[in-house]
Amino acid sequence: MIRTSRRPLLLAAPALLLPRAAGAQGSWPDRPIRWINPGPAGGAGDVISRLVGDRLSARLGQPVVVENRPGAGTNIGMTALARSAPDGYTVGLASIASHAANRWLHDTMPFDAERDFAAVGLIALVPNIVVVPPQNPPRDLQSFIAWARGLGRPLNFGSVGIGSSQHLAAAQFGQITGIEITHAPYNQAGQMNTDLIEGRLDVLFQSISAVAAMAQGGRMRPIAVSGPERVPAFPDLPTMREQGVDVTTTGWFGLATPAGVPEPILARLDEALAASLQEPDLRERIIAGGSVPRVMRRAEFAAFMRAESEKVGAIVRATGARRG
């Protein structure tokens, strides 16, 4: 059981004759493209948006303007995307929150994640690592489970919010192990990390970029990867599955547009994204930021998001988590 106690940036190719909007003709793109990031400046989604937006700009021959529209667990930014003109000049960052978790967490939604968007492609998986305070005895996942069962109280853990990949991974862990855990949502990762280091939290399922330096410096102890595979930043750290607990929930980012964008524009975006993700420099920079680049084309990405939504729905229903 689990209980739950705008900064635009211009980024700098032959044009393709395509419809700009219903009944209009023109070359696309012939003006800047807006990229909506439904998260805060400086977050993992912001970093991914700017890295990939820069490469799309080079391939498409027009600036890509990244606009941060955070709030309501990505719903504010994604509502703006869904309501944008379907002309190929507005794209946005889809995630496990916007396209898998939120429909199960909110009583009402301002958009339908499947009907109101068109999938372009997956960009990267964003695995979390499980970290504990260095002063506590557990050194691997099984010793942590044994320690937790002997506490005589629920485990305390934090995340960046209900429906985040950190929250969902911890919830899945509680379901599988039967360990009761208490969730504390945070607005800032920095305070959450401090509370773990000082022992006010027992465990974090935290993004690699947020804790890598502290984990490598001994200020917190990594004990597992929450995701289906090991990660380049911690190649010797086994996954939870390798340690006997089949938690595979991981974050991810992909590219989407409003529904109704003309097929030739979607095809060109798909091609440009896939080609960009094959560039060694971009791949290295995504990895350095704690994510794992992954090419997944339009149809496969759409199917992936549907499957993720069903998986997350089962976790949310089991925990009873709600945003209201």
Rank of each mutant, 00 (worst) to 15 (best):
A12E: 15
L17K: 11
W28Q: 08
R31E: 11
P32L: 01
I33G: 09
P38F: 10
P38M: 10
D46M: 13
I48H: 09
L56V: 09
Q62N: 09
L81Y: 07
L81E: 03
D87W: 14
A97R: 15
H106R: 13
M109E: 10
P110T: 06
D112Q: 13
L122Q: 03
L125H: 14
V131A: 09
Q135D: 13
A148G: 13
G150Y: 08
L155N: 03
L155W: 04
F157A: 09
S159W: 02
V160L: 15
G163A: 11
L168C: 09
A169Q: 04
G174N: 02
G174R: 01
G174V: 05
I179Q: 00
I181Y: 01
P185M: 12
Y186G: 08
Q188C: 14
Q188K: 13
I197T: 08
I197L: 07
E198W: 13
L204S: 07
Q206I: 15
Q206T: 15
G218A: 04
P222A: 11
V225Y: 03
G227D: 00
G227Y: 02
E229H: 07
A233E: 03
D236W: 11
D236G: 10
M240N: 02
E242G: 02
D246H: 03
T248K: 04
T249H: 00
G254R: 00
V261N: 04
I265A: 00
Q278R: 15
Q278G: 15
R283G: 12
A288N: 12
A288E: 12
V316Q: 02
T319C: 05
G324R: 02
